[in-house]
Simulated scan of single mutants.
Amino acid sequence: MADQYVQPGHGPAEPLPAVPSRPPGSVRRTTSIDMVRPAGFANGLRLIGRARDLLTRESGDTTVLDIAGFQAEVDFRPPRELRGLRTDPVRPELAGLIGQPTLSGFRRRLDQLCPAAERTLLLHLLDDVPGASLIAGHSQFAEQAVTGVSGLPLGMSANVCAGWRDGGTMAESLKAGEIRIVRGPLAVAPGPLGDPLAWHALPPAAPTMMRRHRLVDVVADDQGWRVDSFLRDSHWPMSGPAEGLETVIHEYMLTARVDAGLVVAGVEVTPRVLPWNECLGAVASASGLVRSSLGEIDARVRQELRGTPACTHLNDVIRSLAWVPTLLATLGR
């Protein structure tokens, strides 16, 4: 059975049956990045990004506020350099990202080319390129038992995050010269049943593909604003008991309370799916950002949430709070 795809030592394995319904009087940002190998595992990685901002009025009427997308070609050998990029809308200055490693320094270069103060939908989508380039390696290693799929250098080391700490499942397997394959639970659709507007259009998936789903909801409450941020990394294996089905590798839900002064008043993180039990050690890291202004979040996460107390995937969820002021501005339209 496909449920047997989750192995001993796996962390939480309870993906959400549906993302939260769209609240009246809210703005929802959804993004996705598909990680595909059109020429096979040995011939690079293609990232296809899509994004949408949707306003839901108190009446329930909706307006699409913005859409964006990109297609990127990545040399999958570490440091996974960006070889090609097309964006919608077109931003000629982003040609300066070509040749940039996607695993390190990519966001700094993006900030240099397009000041972070812009906080546009396209830049939010491109900000996820490092995360997508990193997790795309999962499909490579998950399919090594399949004839014709060769290994590639992992490009990871111990103590980069909670899940890779010394003595943990992944670090110990790396020392042994092997890699433990993460097999996650079966997914359900990333949106409430019966709500075709819950998510932007997602094309059908194919075996070996991975997809990062992201969602941010902003809505007023009695204290100021409530922010719900969701992340899911999925994989469609080409072999094994879940062959051809969507399995979840990472999934987090974060709810933050933001006061009228745009200061974080509270944060609650729910880890729904994590590869290994060691990953749970990062969950408490978000609490240290309470009483930070939204304008401080991005820099504090990059500077402080590093190493074994942190999780790169959770960091991406937390950093989504930096885009909340831009989303709040759209609520006034």
Rank of each mutant, 00 (worst) to 15 (best):
A198L: 04
G177A: 01
G184L: 11
A198Y: 05
I181K: 05
A171W: 01
S173T: 12
G191M: 07
E172V: 13
P190L: 02
L193R: 07
W164H: 06
C161H: 06
R183A: 03
L174V: 11
A162Q: 10
L186R: 02
A171K: 00
A162G: 09
T169D: 00
M156T: 06
S173H: 08
L154G: 00
N159F: 14
A158R: 15
R180I: 15
A158L: 14
V188S: 15
G194C: 14
A162L: 12
L186Q: 03
A158Q: 13
A176D: 15
L174N: 04
L154D: 00
G177I: 07
I181M: 04
G167M: 09
A176P: 12
N159E: 08
W164R: 02
M170N: 07
N159T: 12
T169I: 06
E178K: 00
I181L: 11
H200W: 15
G177Q: 02
G168M: 07
M156C: 08
G184N: 09
G167S: 08
I181D: 04
A189M: 12
G167N: 07
N159W: 13
R183I: 00
K175L: 10
S173N: 11
C161K: 00
K175M: 09
H200G: 11
G155H: 04
R180L: 15
A158S: 14
S173L: 12
A187T: 11
H200Y: 15
C161V: 02
A189P: 10
R183Q: 13
L186T: 04
L197R: 03
G155W: 09
V182G: 00
A187Q: 11
A171V: 05
L197G: 10
V188D: 15
V182D: 08
A176F: 11
L174T: 05
T169S: 01
G155P: 01
K175N: 10
I179E: 11
P192N: 09
A198H: 02
E178S: 05
W164S: 03
L154F: 00
G168A: 06
K175T: 09
A176K: 14
A198N: 01
P192A: 10
P196M: 00
G194A: 12
A187E: 14
I181Q: 02
R180A: 15
T169A: 08
P185K: 11
A176V: 11
G168S: 09
E178L: 03
M156S: 08
H200S: 12
V182H: 04
G184H: 07
I181P: 02
G184S: 09
G168K: 03
W164Y: 12
S157N: 11
P190T: 05
P196H: 06
G177Y: 04
R183G: 10
G177F: 09
G191Q: 03
R165E: 01
G177V: 02
E178Y: 03
M156F: 09
A162D: 05
P185E: 04
V188N: 15
W199M: 14
W199L: 13
A187Y: 12
A171T: 02
P185D: 00
H200E: 14
T169L: 10
P196T: 09
A176S: 14
G167A: 07
E172F: 08
P190I: 02
N159H: 13
A189G: 09
G155T: 07
